[in-house]
Amino acid sequence: MPETRLPAESDQSDGAAARFLVEPLTDRCREVFEAGAHACVGISPFNSYFSAERIAALARWALGAFKRVHFFVPDTAAAYTLEALGYAPERAAWKARRQGQYVRNKITRALAAAGIDEPDGQLLDGQALAENAAYRILQERIEQCSREDSVFFRACLGASGWTLERRLPAGQEPTHEQLCSAVRYFLAELPLFLDTPGITGEPASVFCYHQVPDFLDDLFRHRLSLCPADGQGFVRVSEVTR
């Protein structure tokens, strides 16, 4: 990570403020962030970090820092992680749908409280992305690269392991079979790291999340065979604890 750290605040109605530390991944990411055109805020299902209060604070911060904002919820894809953890496909799909609705409700309430009349238009979930032509084209490119480039695919497996290790019992490592199942979740997320501007029709966009797996560091530093679009940025946005 570069040394640039940008403090930011999200005002709350009770007078308190949530403070965030914003860390652009590269100099180019910092340029895209400072332009303030668009943000895509990643909200992970089954992640206790994203409480209703934190989502509301993130919404206030993003709406104050950018001209336009979308929230990405990989709800449909979350079923792949559950399958890797041993759930039957039907049960995994059901749990993913239920959790997705729970997360969408929290985002909708946060946006409504911030004065957004039609919050559904700012949600990028599985259904919205399935109908997005640019997203589907990116998926095809990613799947082809995964088949033809073993280095790229191993890096994707590594990112999936980073996700799975947080769901497995302490000390247990994911098997190769689990990684190959769970990687479908990461591959479904990857278009948003490569070209959110193309997906949303914005001139530039910065993806916002509170963690940075090694894969994204390699991706944005052009160490892999696929590279982000010129207008794509990434920042780590972490809440400062008092």
Rank of each mutant, 00 (worst) to 15 (best):
E177A: 11
F186K: 06
A128G: 15
A188E: 13
L58F: 03
T81N: 10
P169M: 12
Q139I: 06
E143L: 15
P228I: 00
D75C: 11
R97A: 14
L164G: 04
F46D: 04
F234T: 10
G36K: 02
C180N: 05
A204E: 11
R60V: 06
D149W: 00
T108R: 12
R28K: 15
W94P: 06
H210F: 13
G100V: 03
D120N: 05
R97P: 09
A155Y: 03
M1T: 08
L224C: 08
A56V: 09
F207C: 02
L123A: 06
N105M: 15
A188Q: 07
E83Q: 14
L138W: 04
T81M: 13
L138N: 01
E23S: 12
P74T: 12
P89R: 09
D125N: 13
L25K: 11
E9Q: 13
F215K: 01
R109Y: 05
E140V: 10
A62W: 01
I55G: 01
A182H: 05
Y209I: 14
D149T: 00
R54Y: 05
R223N: 07
W61E: 10
E165W: 04
V73P: 11
A39W: 01
V235N: 12
N105R: 15
R30C: 10
A114C: 03
C40I: 10
S44T: 07
F234Q: 13
D195C: 07
F20H: 06
E53Y: 02
A110R: 04
G161C: 04
T175C: 15
A110W: 15
Q178F: 09
G64Q: 01
A229H: 12
P74F: 15
S160A: 12
F220T: 10
R221T: 11
P174S: 06
T81W: 10
L190A: 01
A35S: 09
L187H: 06
C208I: 14
E131S: 13
Y49D: 07
A65L: 02
D14I: 05
A52H: 12
E143P: 05
L21N: 03
P119L: 02
Q144F: 00
Y185H: 07
E118F: 09
E148F: 00
I55P: 04
I116P: 04
E34M: 09
L219N: 01
E31P: 11
S181G: 03
D117I: 14
A35L: 14
S51I: 04
L82K: 06
R166D: 03
D149Y: 00
Q139F: 01
T26A: 03
A62L: 03
D27T: 06
F33A: 09
E239W: 11
Q127F: 08
S146A: 11
A155M: 11
A57L: 01
A96Y: 15
M1C: 05
F215M: 02
R54E: 09
R184E: 13
R221S: 13
L124R: 15
R242K: 11
D195G: 02
D117H: 08
R136C: 00
R221P: 07
A84R: 03
A84H: 05
A93N: 10
Q144C: 00
P7F: 01
I142V: 03
V206K: 08
D149S: 00
K67N: 06
G161H: 02
T200Y: 11
A155R: 12
P7E: 03
P169T: 09
D217N: 13
W162R: 05
F153V: 00
L194S: 05
H38G: 06
Q127V: 13
V151Y: 00
A113T: 04
